[in-house]
Nucleic acid binder design. Structure first.
Lengths: 224, 224
DNA sequence: TATACTATAATTGTATACAATTAGGAGGTA
DNA sequence: TACCTCCTAATTGTATACAATTATAGTATA
């Protein structure tokens, strides 16, 4: 799964590879909030020059994962539970908009990919393969984004979705979540296929709200 | 106005300055869609080394203004009318969400800044100062974003808003638009002050829809 | 002891040098 | 002419060198 994400993100330059490494470290909380990321230390650790390191840090800054202070360095920002919840709120409204646009504009190839992703989810749900399920889940939603035919919208949602998946991936390990999630995605797919905007939006909203609830529940139980 | 945007974006490193220059060139369509941005050519033209140029190009890529092909270079993507309209759709749902969150979380200092920005808009509208009005307009909305207390949300909306303002700034030069826009912002401010979420969302939505209509109208008349 | 100053080291910002990849054309062949 | 191959130049990717800024420690002074 990690590999899949790594490969479809940017091209294979060193800078992009480092970006992926550092991003995952931050999202997995391997760096403390506020910690400074030293360029030479990183270049020594990763055995490369400072140039690709700086590229990756720039990218992280633009993604909002670190902040850069002039002549001082970059510092890890980190995510609070509220931040994750805010992102899910953003995703809630954007996915609803995306599915509407997608229904207007999607072509048959992209529609097939949604179906394919949905079938993979169902299969993964049956054999209880969490990783495979996650991959299919991501593929499902990204196919919808692609269906909007808007590079900008697609990119925006993919980024948001990435953070949500990484930060909350532990939270969806409830026993029967795979099954119910598969059903929810099936409902979304069928609504899109039928070209029924209203129903599709409704099903998407229901799905995101449920995810949001589970994530919230997970973090609250963790705090106790 | 250009200066104002330049100064509050990132810090004063060369890379950031170049980024601003190139971004404005792209948004003002000084580069054709699909055009390649050559690193050495740019470094010669701007009299600096390739390093800051590459930084800026990386930033542009992350903002979705150019695409980068490995070992080939970066190419201008450009915006269609539909892209701009899509952005306004995104803004429509996100600003509505932002004002809701802001009402829950905003502090008095940020509230004062909204008021200040609104008063500046009213003043600019009276003296028919388009540039001053635009600045105040940006400040008004950014104060709301800040009120959400979410760095990520704030950054996201600021970026989207920037593109919309630059790409559609010519379209709002209708004679009485300043007056009506000032009123719309006043209504939004008052709803926030009253803590009335429902009314605030309604007023924001009305405002964005009107902007969207004017932009659309402008581009359609331009095409004929 | 606390504070201010200075020198030095560490770190970031920028320029340049080198490596790897790609683009384009000259020349040959069918 | 059309197409292929190879060579060279141009371009991007990476490493290193240098400049500018900031952090740190030690010393002097009140």
């Amino acid at each position: 799964m990690k590999k899949a994400i790594l490969e479809n993100t940017g091209h294979g330059s060193l800078g992009n590879k480092i970006f992926n490494i550092l991003r995952d470290r931050i999202l997995n909380e391997e760096y403390a909030k506020g910690q400074k990321l030293n360029e030479v230390a990183l270049s020594k650790e990763l055995q490369i020059s400072r140039t690709p390191i700086r590229e990756a840090l720039k990218q992280l800054e633009l993604e909002g994962l670190v902040r850069s202070e002039p002549n001082k360095g970059v510092f890890v920002i980190g995510f609070s539970h509220r931040d994750i919840n805010d992102m899910l709120e953003i995703r809630y409204v954007l996915e609803a908009l995306a599915v509407e646009l997608a229904i207007e504009r999607i072509n048959s190839v992209q529609l097939d990919k949604i179906k394919e992703a949905y079938l993979a989810m169902e299969e993964a749900s049956k054999v209880r393969d969490q990783d495979k399920f996650n991959d299919a889940n991501i593929a499902f939603h990204e196919s919808i984004y692609k269906g909007t035919q808007s590079q900008y919208f697609e990119q925006l949602l993919r980024d948001i979705n990435y953070y949500i998946h990484v930060t909350s991936r532990h939270s969806i390990k409830q026993p029967n979540r795979l099954d119910s999630a598969a059903i929810e995605h099936r409902e979304i797919y069928e609504a899109i296929l039928a070209g029924d905007k209203k129903r599709a939006v409704e099903k998407v909203k229901k799905h995101i709200r449920k995810t949001q609830f589970l994530v919230k529940h997970y973090y609250e139980s963790k705090d106790n």
